[in-house]
Design a protein around this nucleic acid. Sequence first.
DNA 1: CAAGCGCAGCGTGAGAGTCC
DNA 2: GGACTCTCACGCTGCGCTTG
Length: 316
Amino acid sequence: MRSQEELCMDLLAFENLLLNTLASNTQETHLGRLHTAAERVRCAILDSDEQGKLAPTTRHLGARIGQRLERLAQLLRAEQREVNMMRTTTRNELRELLQNSNIARETSDNIQDKGDASLNAGKMRSWFLKNLGYPFPTRSAKKSILAETNAEAKDNSECLVYNQAVLWFINTRRRSGWTTFLRSYAKGDKAMLLEIAWALQHEQGGTHEQRCWSAGPRTVDGVTRQLMCSQARQNTFTLRDLFPEASERFLNELRSDWEQIVERIKVGAKDKIGEWVNDVIRLSETLPSSRPSSSNAGEAHIWRTCPEVTSRNRDC
DNA sequence: CAAGCGCAGCGTGAGAGTCC
DNA sequence: GGACTCTCACGCTGCGCTTG
């Protein structure tokens, strides 16, 4: 059990690390270190609180840091909004400038190819999550997704071309961990992975909206039909049916990896900054489970207990 | 001469590696 | 995280050869 002095030092060190990370860069390794530090402080505070040893001074320091970080998060979000507005304005001005220029077409093509990092991937993301067991859209499916995306596009910058959709699906399968999952748990057999997805879907139950993902149809191509015929499985099989010899730990790891894939597809890396800023705010909200004293009434919103988050975090 | 077979060429899509 | 290049696998097509 860490002393109250050590806990206060941990809190300050964490705040310092967060500020240094923001000031330097936000590479994956730094974010990982920040997450680790946040987790360590949170667990130490929770331990201390559960044993009734959390001192008012530590509580007070936590509240102040929470307030500071919340203010910082507000600034960051405002900054992000401003950057987005500037980007839109710049793009529009550039397009206007180039409209009557000889090089207009060539340059705008280039911008389309390289410049816009925020692809309008909502429909593709949605299709991917609805077909997570076999995220290989046919040519016609891709065209259909593109048609839907482009029909709802507010301007040309939100329109997609066919090749972008092809690349997006290739990259998303690889970067979400879907391809790794395919190799690890289905030995590269896509039909097998589809069966795993169906088993997971059956285990979780609920609707697509509740799960945020679906395995997709079981008759997507010849591979799938072949497996269905050979195994003649019913739709109520479980992971245990697919892996009769596997340990519980293996199955739990599989479930956890699958959830990670879903999370990665749901939230792109560009949203990570906002995500972990929210984590930090949530951290300050979940530290002690008891209410603040009346003298700290102004900090009450920082320390309010969120039962769902708190209970989940305590399980760690 | 038609049918069957094997082979090369080509287009397409996916994966891996990489750049920015 | 989008896009590019390279490589590989696969399916389709056309061509030449063999066989009945």
